[in-house]
Design a protein around this nucleic acid. Sequence first.
DNA 1: TACGAAATGTGTACGGTGCTCACAATGGAG
DNA 2: CTCCATTGTGAGCACCGTACACATTTCGTA
Lengths: 176, 176
Amino acid sequence: MVLREATRRVGVAPSSVYRHFADRLALLDAVCSAAQADLAVAIEKEIAEMPREKDSARAARACLRGIGTGYLRFAQTEPGLFRTAFSASGDLRNAASRARAGESGLTPLQLLGAALDELVEAGVLPRGRRPGAEFLAWSAVHGLAMLLIDGPLRGLDHAEAQNVGQRLIDMVERGL
Amino acid sequence: MVLREATRRVGVAPSSVYRHFADRLALLDAVCSAAQADLAVAIEKEIAEMPREKDSARAARACLRGIGTGYLRFAQTEPGLFRTAFSASGDLRNAASRARAGESGLTPLQLLGAALDELVEAGVLPRGRRPGAEFLAWSAVHGLAMLLIDGPLRGLDHAEAQNVGQRLIDMVERGL
DNA sequence: TACGAAATGTGTACGGTGCTCACAATGGAG
DNA sequence: CTCCATTGTGAGCACCGTACACATTTCGTA
């Protein structure tokens, strides 16, 4: 559904693809990795641009929020890449692949995990609730992203979307 | 991508479709409506089978949980229908269509809205937080459903998925 | 009951897709 | 220079969604 179109844009014969990828899906998987890497650096940038907090608890919280807003911002700025990033993503195994990582060497999911660890360290998140918490936070933000770009919430302007996003992150922060 | 396959299963010529639907997308949209209706009745059933609570606050809370678990159960029991239900869903306008409703005449989103209203009525959810709350709760559950059936969480067995689901709902309940 | 129109189904054809395969062209190691 | 691995090519296959002219069925009305 994209292969021939892609080759056309690059100005190359459709069959050339098969010298580099086994499948249409293998090609798509490569794009998916690249997209996740892009997402990772977008998140890293979001965190880097945040005002530094002195209190470690505040800092950890802010970091988590940064990941969430970065995730949502990326989904809205680059809906195509975002869709692709999770369209054909494999299981959790290759979710740790270096090809899916940002400049820090961490994938988006690993960045989230690190933030949650900080939260535990700072005593904000009870240690007992830590295992699997990444999936809870991720679910919430990922779900909103989906609803915003494809689902029934598409068409919300940037400000409204930002607002819902912040409220969602509030909910996660309170509920984790 | 499905049209010819569908006609084959029904035992009918591919072109017949165009007597009833304008497009491949129009057909898909009809299936989408049917799938959402199925989801609505699945949720209704989940709620109906719950033990009745006397305390209105407890009842409202239980109702919300029922919607969440019903949603997740449906996604796992009928992943194909679930995917379809939100694959080509239009905007919020036709999300209220009768064709997408269950036996109660309410669509999944409307059921969720009603549950949140009860929560406000029972004094559990502050009135100020009510507007837009359906999208927060929905995001969380929808995101997990996606991760479970297509995303990196696919392959979790039913028990593990159930566990993550309940924890997610805990989070929503606390965080709303 | 008979007729004519609307509804429904069909076969063929067109351009698009992913993919295979035999066949160049290229370019670096020996 | 000569191999040989790498990369690109074009024709062709089976499939897809769609259009259109043509049969068949259904059914309200005269």
